[in-house]
């Protein structure tokens, strides 16, 4: 019974943090299950994938109903994350753990450094100039990017006039840039998700935010939406190949559900700079964990 409660408590913490950052909690669950409970790496990844789907469903439900996530952008990019997760799930059963751990640590450090070097959050988020949208458009100091129906229809109409896929995926107050690089990032995110049991938000959020010009809070919400499909594509391979332990995955996932539900309702009150610092800290800690595992 104590082990059950411990697992569920770990899930609550991972779910809350994951929902706030669009990480899905996987970066915390895999170390929790492998280092804390001595589970084989692959079973930890399988359980983690289940947990990140729960996180995604719970958080994205709230984000969508509040009009924070960009559904069109999310679905377009998740075409590539799902296909890549399929490939990643197959590769995961072929490659040695150590090689994967070192590669992942390097990736995390790169992303953390990229985020840390951005001097100004507003500059990074691409919201300092050329907004031109009406009320309800993205404004970091005013809370989340909540779209009024009028803003949304206007933005869609403007995008249609401008033409182009990237323009049609833009939202009120921001325009999508570098769609091609976003696709590459999505492919990487899908592979990373299936290999390491994370949602892929650690790649998707910075790619959308830093490269594609999506506001941080929209990027986080859209990433949460995409994480479910990405992890589902990888999770099905683990499910059918015996990589999911129901006795571990279920209590952890229930904890994650509770944590994610609480956090997604608190997300509006989290300061953007704090959110970013937390994100960087999580990346660095996870990189150290993965490097230690790789070095052995």
């Amino acid at each position: 019974m104590f082990e059950l409660l411990l697992l569920m408590s770990g899930g609550v913490a991972a779910g809350a943090f994951g929902a706030l950052l669009g990480l899905g909690g996987g970066v915390l669950i895999v170390p929790l299950l492998t280092l804390g409970f001595g589970l084989p790496f692959r079973e930890a990844v399988g359980a983690s994938l289940v947990c990140v789907i729960v996180t995604s469903s719970a958080a994205a439900s709230v984000y969508l109903q509040r009009d924070v996530a960009n559904l069109r952008l999310g679905m377009t990019l998740e075409m590539f994350t799902a296909i890549a997760a399929l490939a990643g799930g197959l590769i995961a059963f072929l490659l040695p753990d150590r090689v994967l751990a070192i590669m992942f640590a390097a990736l995390l450090l790169y992303v953390a450094l990229t985020m840390a070097r951005a001097r100004d959050a507003r500059e990074t988020l691409g919201v300092s100039a050329g907004r031109g949208a009406g009320s309800g458009a993205w404004a970091p100091d005013d809370g989340p990017a909540v779209f009024e129906d009028g803003d949304r229809e206007t933005a869609t109409a403007e995008a249609a006039i401008d033409g182009g896929l990237a323009a049609s995926l833009s939202g009120p107050g921001y325009r999508i840039h570098n769609l091609g690089r976003g696709v590459l990032g999505s492919l990487l995110a899908g592979i990373v998700s299936a290999l390491f049991g994370v949602g892929g938000g650690i790649v998707k959020v910075p790619v959308m935010n830093l490269i594609m010009g999506v506001p941080m809070r929209v990027a986080t919400a859209t990433s949460n939406l995409m994480i479910g499909v990405t992890a589902s594509a990888g999770g099905l391979i683990y499910l059918f190949r015996g990589g999911i332990d129901p006795y571990v995955a279920a209590p952890t996932a229930v904890g994650v559900f509770v944590g994610a539900s609480l956090a997604s309702r608190l997300a509006d009150r989290v300061d953007l700079p704090v959110l970013r610092l937390l994100f960087i800290a999580v990346l660095v800690v996870t990189a150290a964990q993965m490097a230690l595992r790789g070095i052995g």
Partner: peptide, 27 residues
């Protein structure tokens, strides 16, 4: 778009609640 997103949000929420209940019963 707004109506579609809210509908999909409800679908996700319902799926999460059904999953939660089944898992809780199993636990």
């Amino acid at each position: 778009d707004a109506r579609l997103e809210r509908t999909i949000g409800l679908v996700l929420g319902a799926g999460a609640i059904v999953s939660f209940c089944l898992l809780a019963m199993g636990i």
